[in-house]
């Protein structure tokens, strides 16, 4: 008799831990532990201003990581998110500063540029059957070069466009609740996350994202036009990168054409820490968000404890390996 509730509890637990949820919980727990650890180590850490700085630092990497998550769930990889971000910023700069167009057109240009480049990557992968790693590696270099060519290797400043810096640095929330002046960049991050999460779980596009990563041939044999859906996913990811481009350009009040390389690896790191499987088919936006936060908290905390920058990089690398290892151990036990 007494055995019955026991069994129930087990299966409920089992359900909770299924489908990569464990690593999400693990990631979340690590985040909490990091927060507690750092606030014990330094009284400066838990201050509102520092928390906001962490969120601010997360915003760009977080948005890029969300774009990367979409592509990675399909079983692909996107190495071009960093330089594409810069390229969209440069294009926005061209439209706003060089051509003197109004702000909304600049915003649209940035996002449309991202979507267009995503479309190209998607076409290379889906139609021309170039492996995602190669296709986006090529795009990464092409876009890096184009950013430098178009800008003449000089930063483009947005001084002539009043209000551009508010995209990232203003605070709509702060106007309503002065106690929590969360910057717009962070607000945008959460909006993008909510939208991406909705798309993944509730729309056809999201469904095919998982289906493609799970067994592409099976989807194709079911009569689905896998090529077009894949292109759509890469295009969406590109548009999201365009949003990141706007945030960073606004934060720096300039488009810095030499920036961008390396961001793609940080984005992929956040995705992996968040429990998304690099072999495709599994992953969540919430996990990615937590992954990006862990990285930002870690860097911020180590900086407050005056750990040298070089060591911060070492720690990040170790965390990635640990996160994936923990998930593997869990899965082996589960079987």
């Amino acid at each position: 008799m007494t055995a019955i509730p026991n069994v129930n509890k087990q299966s409920a637990l089992g359900k909770l831990f299924a489908g990569g949820a464990f690593q999400k919980i693990l990631a979340f727990a690590s985040l909490i532990i990091l927060l507690i650890g750092f606030s014990l180590a330094s009284p400066n850490f838990m201050q509102t201003s520092n928390m906001i700085a962490i969120l601010q630092a997360t915003s760009v990497n977080g948005v890029l990581a969300i774009a990367a998550t979409l592509v990675i769930i399909t079983g692909g990889i996107d190495l071009s998110v960093g330089t594409l971000m810069t390229f969209t910023a440069v294009m926005t700069g061209v439209v706003l500063t060089n051509l003197g167009m109004p702000l909304p057109i600049g915003v649209v240009t940035g996002i449309a540029t991202g979507a267009f480049c995503g479309f190209i990557s998607g076409t290379l992968v889906a139609k021309m059957k170039i492996p995602p790693f190669i296709a986006t590696l090529g795009m990464m270099l092409i876009l890096k070069g184009l950013s430098l060519v178009i800008s003449g290797t000089r930063p483009i400043y947005f001084n002539d466009t009043p209000g551009f810096d508010l995209i990232s640095r203003g605070s709509l929330i702060g106007e309503v609740f002065p106690a929590v002046p969360i910057p717009n960049g962070v607000l945008i991050l959460f909006l993008v996350a909510a939208a991406a999460s909705y798309i993944l779980s509730r729309t056809v596009l999201g469904r095919y994202c998982f289906a493609l990563g799970s067994n592409e041939e099976a989807v194709r044999l079911s009569g689905v036009n896998t090529d077009n859906w894949k292109i759509a996913i890469y295009t969406l990811a590109g548009a999201i990168v365009g949003v990141a481009g706007l945030i960073i350009a606004s934060r720096l009040n300039s488009a810095q054409p030499a920036l961008g390389l390396g961001y793609e690896l940080e984005a992929i790191a956040a995705v992996v820490i968040g429990g998304t499987s690099l072999s495709g088919g599994r992953g969540t936006i919430l996990g990615t968000l937590i992954g990006a936060l862990i990285m930002a908290v870690l860097l911020n905390g180590l900086r407050i404890l005056s750990v040298a920058q070089e060591w911060q990089t070492v720690v990040t690398g170790a965390i990635i390996i640990l996160a994936v290892y923990a998930d593997n151990v869990r899965r082996r036990k589960g079987n």
Binding site: R202, T203, V204, L205, G206, R207, F210, A211, G213, S214, N215, E217, A218, V219, L221, S222, G223, V224, G281, R282
Partner: peptide, 25 residues
Amino acid sequence: SLMNDLTAAQNVLIGREPRRRFGRL
């Protein structure tokens, strides 16, 4: 030829998911 990471129903009706407006499932 099934997609292991999806549910049974998601597999059965792949490509013909009942949809709401704007591509929502």
